[in-house]
């Protein structure tokens, strides 16, 4: 579903990604960990074309993002993304946040989009917040709306970029629960996180990145309990 080949990304003279290869198949839940500045968020942003890359290929369902003729907007419809800072649209209600892209991008009828959006809000436990504006919601609620908003486009895969890092500790679990449900329903997910519990419990594969490279990857339990690489060992000693 997702295929990265020799991906290089530079910001000026700073090389953030230095040749990343990654294949993700359907229904996999790939958890990416690593110290800050290791390039894990950048990697996610390259997958839906928010960051252009300098070398290599990003191939989503057979479509090469780096190809000149590729319409990146069509690919993005298939790739949902959730951000650390929620990025809900503050001038729209929760329901309108969900309905906007399906009606304006996919051209779906309003009634249909409304029904689907209401279902999605119910799924993330916020059916009583449809007409609420984002600034009236807690961080955890906002992030759940953001997940539902991405799901409203009926994507084939979801990218989660440190989605619990900006939350108060007591609000983390409500967001992780939604993500767990999603994983159990078979959604293909790429999750950048510091939540090792989530990685162990839900992840089908764990990737440790450092200095723009994938250092180690494998089954989450094995890597967490017995990391092979010295850098992975050092990182896990600090976070666990």
């Amino acid at each position: 579903m997702i295929k990265l080949e020799d991906v290089h990304k530079r910001f000026g003279s700073l090389e953030v990604l230095r040749g990343v290869d990654l294949h993700v198949s359907k229904s996999e839940v790939v958890v990416i960990i690593g110290p800050s500045g290791s390039g894990k968020s950048t990697l996610l942003r390259c997958i839906n074309g928010l960051e252009p890359i300098q070398r290599g290929h990003v191939i989503i369902e057979g479509i090469d993002l780096t190809h000149r003729d590729t319409n990146v907007n069509q690919v993005r419809e298939k790739v949902g993304m959730v951000f650390q800072s929620f990025n809900l649209f503050p001038h729209l209600t929760a329901l309108e946040n969900l309905m906007l892209a399906p009606t304006k991008v996919q051209g779906r009828p309003k009634a249909e989009a409304r029904e689907m959006s209401e279902d999605l809000l119910q799924r993330v436990g916020l059916s009583d917040k449809t007409d609420t504006y984002p600034d009236q919601l807690s961080g955890g609620q906002q992030q759940r709306v953001a997940i539902a908003r991405a799901l409203a486009m009926q994507p084939d895969m979801m990218l989660f970029d440190e989605v619990t890092s900006a939350l108060d500790p007591e609000l983390v679990s409500e967001v992780l629960e939604v993500m767990k449900d999603l994983a159990h329903e078979g959604m293909t997910m790429l999750v950048v996180t510091h939540e090792m519990g989530f990685a162990r419990e839900v992840g089908t594969r764990l990737i440790f990145m450092d200095e723009g490279l994938i250092v180690e990857e494998g089954a989450p339990r094995e890597i967490i309990s017995a990391p092979q690489e010295e850098r992975t060992q050092r990182f896990l000693r600090v976070v666990l």
Binding site: N48, R76, E77, V79, G80, M81, F83, V105
Partner: peptide, 15 residues
């Protein structure tokens, strides 16, 4: 307007 707004919109497939 925070750049995250544009990113969120673009990530939903909006031009």
């Amino acid at each position: 307007i925070h750049f995250g707004q544009m990113e969120a919109a673009r990530s939903l497939g909006m031009t």
